[in-house]
Design a protein around this nucleic acid. Structure first.
Length: 434
DNA sequence: TCTGGGGTCCTAGGACCC
DNA sequence: TCTGGGGTCCTAGGACCC
C-alpha cells in the first residue's frame, strides 16, 4: 500500500513567479510577517546560499549585490493556489491528508494503472493545470514517502517522481546512506546532534538502530520513526483536519513597547482575532492564555517574559475573551521593560454544539451574545476585517505589520486581478481521471 | 533599525491520593 | 537507626513540523 507525499517546490516563491513571469530565473525570496525572516527561496536564491529562516536584515548587502527580489508574504494568494492544487490532487485518491499549505499525503493503494504511473500523472497534471511544479515521493509508510519526496527533489535521476516503494532494498539503503539523519521526518537539529554522538549519522544508521534502544535513549516518537523507516506503518492518514486543540494569535510589534496602554490594545486585538478563528471553527474556549516578552536578541536591554492561563466558562464571546486576556496582561506586566511581542492562546476547546450546560446560565444573555458575535462576523466578512471592533483594540498604527513588498492578491480580490494577460488556472473536471 | 507565526506531541517532575 | 508502593493529574518545557 504505497503512500504518496506530494509537495510543491519553493511554493511561495513559485506562486509569485507564476503571476509575474519577469521573476523567473531570478533570485526571489519571500519574507515572513513583519518582513522578518526568509521563509521561501527560488532555486536561484538558494544557489546564492541564502539559508531558510535567515533574518532578512542580515542579508541586505548580499541581496543588493545579486539583485535579489524580496517579497512580503501574501497568504491570500498562496492559500488560494493551495486550494486549487489540493483539489486537483483529491481526484487521484479517495484518501487525502492535506498536511500543510503546500503538501499532502495520498493513499495510492489500487491506483490505476499503477502507483508509479499515477505519480507521474500527478506531476504532469498539477503542472499543466496550475503551473506549479511538485515533487512526488512514493513509500510504504508516511516517513518513507517523505524521504522519497526528498529524493525526488534533490536527485535529478528521478525527474520529480521517486517510487521508493518498488525499488530493490539495496537501492533504498543506498539512498538512505546518502542522506544525513536530519533529513528524516521527525529528526530536527537537536535530535540529530544527539544521534550523531551515538554514531547515528545517516538515515540508514537510524533505520538499522534497535527500536528498543531508541525508545529508552530518546522517545517513543523516534522509535516510531525507526519502525516507519523499516516499512512498518505506525502513522495513519488523517481523514479530516481534526479538531483544534489550541488557537493562537500573536505578533511581534513594529517597535518595542514599554507602556501598558498600547499593550492592552494589542492584546485586545489578538483576543479578537483568536475569537474570530474560534467561531469560524464552531468551538468554545475554556481557557484564555496570555504571554508577553521582551526582545531576546537585545542583550543590552533587561529581559522579562511571562505567561498566564485563566480558566473561564466555555465561551466564544470576544468581549469575555478580551476581558480575561486583559486581566492576564495586567498581572504579567512590569513597568520598565521594552516589550517586543505578545499573544493570546485559547485552549480547552470544545465544540459549541456539545457544550456542557450550565443550570444557572442566563439563556437570554447567551442568545444576545451569539447574535452580537454573528452580526460582527457578518459585517467584518462583508466589509473588511476590523470594520466593527471593540474600543479596547484602539487604532495604533505602530501595530500595523511591516509588509512593504506584498504582491497583489491576484486571484481573490476583484480589484487586484491581473489585467489583460491571463494564466490558465481553471480546473476542468473531465480532464481528470475519475 | 530590522530576528515570524501557528501548530502538535511527549516527558519529567511535582502535587496529591489511598 | 529506621522513612512504602502504586497510581493519577497537571504543568512547564522541549522537541518537532511547515
Amino acid at each position: 500500500m504505497p503512500i504518496a507525499l506530494i509537495d510543491c517546490n519553493n511554493f511561495y516563491a513559485s506562486c509569485e513567479q507564476l503571476f509575474k513571469p519577469a521573476l523567473l530565473g531570478r533570485p526571489v525570496v519571500v519574507l515572513s510577517n513583519n518582513d522578518g525572516c526568509v521563509v521561501a527561496r527560488s532555486v536561484e536564491a538558494r544557489a546564492l546560499g541564502i539559508p531558510m529562516g535567515a533574518p532578512w536584515h542580515t542579508l541586505k548587502e548580499l541581496a543588493r549585490r545579486h539583485a535579489v527580489v524580496a517579497l512580503s508574504s501574501n497568504y491570500a494568494l498562496y492559500g488560494d493556489l493551495s486550494d486549487r492544487v489540493m483539489r486537483i490532487l483529491s481526484h487521484f485518491s479517495p484518501h487525502q491528508e492535506v498536511y500543510s499549505i503546500d503538501e499532502c499525503f495520498l493513499d495510492l493503494t489500487g491506483a490505476r494503472p499503477n502507483p508509479t504511473d499515477c505519480g507521474v500523472l500527478i506531476y504532469r497534471e498539477v503542472r499543466r493545470l496550475t503551473g506549479i511544479i511538485v515533487g512526488v515521493g512514493l513509500g510504504a509508510t508516511k516517513t518513507l514517502a517523505k524521504f522519497a519526496n526528498h529524493c525526488a527533489k534533490k536527485r535529478p535521476e528521478f525527474a520529480g517522481v521517486c517510487p521508493l516503494f518498488e525499488m530493490p532494498s539495496r537501492e533504498v539503503d543506498r539512498l538512505l546512506a546518502w542522506a544525513p539523519v536530519d533529513e528524516v521526518w521527525g529528526v530536527g537539529r537537536r535530535l540529530a546532534a544527539r544521534l550523531e554522538k551515538q554514531g547515528i549519522g545517516t538515515a540508514l544508521d537510524l533505520k538499522r538502530a534497535a527500536p528498543a534502544r531508541i525508545r529508552s535513549g530518546f522517545s517513543v516518537t523516534l522509535e516510531r520513526t525507526v519502525r516507519e523507516l523499516n516499512g512498518e506503518a505506525c502513522l495513519g492518514l488523517m481523514a479530516g483536519p481534526g479538531q483544534r486543540k489550541q488557537i493562537l494569535s500573536s505578533r511581534s510589534f513594529g517597535v518595542l513597547i514599554g507602556a501598558l496602554a498600547p499593550l492592552e490594545e494589542a492584546v485586545a486585538a489578538y483576543a479578537t482575532r483568536a475569537g474570530e478563528k474560534l467561531r469560524r471553527q464552531g468551538l468554545l474556549a475554556g481557557s484564555v492564555g496570555v504571554f508577553l516578552r521582551t526582545n531576546p536578541f537585545r542583550t543590552d536591554l533587561p529581559q522579562h517574559q511571562g505567561s498566564l492561563t485563566l480558566p473561564l466558562p466555555p465561551t466564544d464571546d470576544t468581549r469575555l475573551l478580551t476581558r480575561a486576556a486583559l486581566r492576564g496582561l495586567h498581572s504579567l506586566y512590569r513597568p520598565g521593560f521594552a516589550y517586543q511581542k505578545a499573544g493570546v492562546c485559547l485552549t480547552d476547546l470544545v465544540p459549541a454544539d456539545r457544550q456542557q450546560g450550565d443550570l444557572f446560565a442566563d439563556r437570554a444573555q447567551e442568545a444576545r451574545s451569539r447574535a452580537l458575535m454573528a452580526a460582527m462576523d457578518a459585517i467584518n466578512r462583508a466589509m473588511g476585517s476590523g470594520t466593527v471592533k471593540l474600543l479596547a483594540e484602539g487604532n495604533d498604527p505602530r501595530r500595523a505589520m511591516r509588509a512593504r513588498h506584498r504582491s497583489p492578491r491576484y486571484t481573490t480580490r476583484l480589484d487586484e486581478l491581473p489585467v489583460a494577460r491571463t494564466v490558465p488556472l481553471a480546473v476542468e473536471q473531465e480532464t481528470l481521471p475519475s
